[in-house]
Design a protein around this nucleic acid. Structure first.
Length: 268
DNA sequence: TGTCAATGCTAAG
DNA sequence: TTAGCCTTGACAA
């Protein structure tokens, strides 16, 4: 479930579990053997996240992990169980083990390469150094739909398919509206809301976007929670009634990603 | 057992 | 715009 909040949560827990002590590193699957060998026995200095990228500092350099669509991390108390499946990287100390499977990226970066990564990523609502005006500059000049811009990591980083669908719904913005047609107020509202929603996501470890007055219970329409584990307005609710107006939620593939919205609440 | 979809991104065309 | 990467879990048969 890799949207930005998951990676920030990971970075935080990673720091707690590993910082300041040497780790044992291995690549049971074999695809990161050289890297693991270089990390083995090294102490973790710090961990941070920028968007969906996890960066773990070691004296030899930065471990860069991007989960992509399929990547998964599993944690647990040491000792680690015998490896099951394809584990690209396993890190462990006396108390904790960390398994990484199926990442899009698992590599070592020099400080210069790490800087280049930060430079190509847009502001991250979860980072205190984020500058929302940088995103606005790109959004306000673009003919692309706002739903596409929200997923473009050089415009804004950390937002994935769930947050984009939900934040647009919460502000009643038509996902097909072009960036240059958004008002500055609309963008500001989107940004401010993302800062809050994603921070909540880091705390809770899941995505909840439904305001208390719109929960199925409050509306008198009991409904089971979606399989992804959060409480949402439109994401993956195609064909179901909108929690606010009752109209059927729509879905459409846009740039190879499934977009969800309510045609009444988010009228053009 | 097999098929498919998935909260992502890149490089090739 | 498309194919490809990479893995798991849900579901169908």
């Amino acid at each position: 479930m890799p949207e930005g909040h998951v990676i920030h949560r990971l970075a935080r827990r990673f720091t707690e579990a590993f910082a300041g002590r040497p780790v044992a590193a291995a690549s049971p699957q074999g695809r990161f053997e050289e890297g693991a060998a270089r990390l083995h026995g090294q102490p973790v200095t710090e961990a941070e996240a920028h968007g969906k990228h996890l960066l773990v500092g070691f004296p030899v350099g930065w471990l860069h992990v991007h989960l992509g669509l399929y990547g998964k991390v599993t944690w647990g108390e040491a000792p680690a169980p015998a490896p099951v499946g394809l584990i690209r990287l396993r890190l462990a100390n006396e108390e904790t083990y960390f398994d990484l499977r199926g990442p899009a990226a698992c590599e070592l970066l020099t400080p210069g390469e790490k800087d280049a990564l930060h430079a190509r990523l847009g502001p991250d609502p979860l980072r205190p150094d984020a500058d929302p005006d940088r995103a606005w500059t790109m959004v306000s000049r673009s003919r692309q739909p706002v739903s596409t811009l929200l997923m473009d990591q050089k415009v804004i980083s950390g937002v994935g398919n769930i947050y984009r669908a939900e934040v647009l719904f919460r502000h009643r913005i038509d996902p097909r509206k072009a960036g240059k047609d958004l008002t500055r107020e609309e963008w500001k509202a989107i940004w401010t809301d993302l800062v809050e929603l994603m921070a909540d996501g880091v705390e809770a470890g899941r995505i909840d976007t439904v305001r208390p007055e719109h929960t199925p219970e409050a509306m008198g329409r009991p409904e089971r929670v979606d399989a992804h584990g959060g409480e949402v307005y439109v994401y993956r609710r195609a064909g179901l009634p909108c929690l606010v107006c009752g109209r059927e939620v729509r879905t459409e593939a846009l740039q190879a990603r499934n977009l969800f919205w309510c045609p009444r609440c988010q009228e053009p």
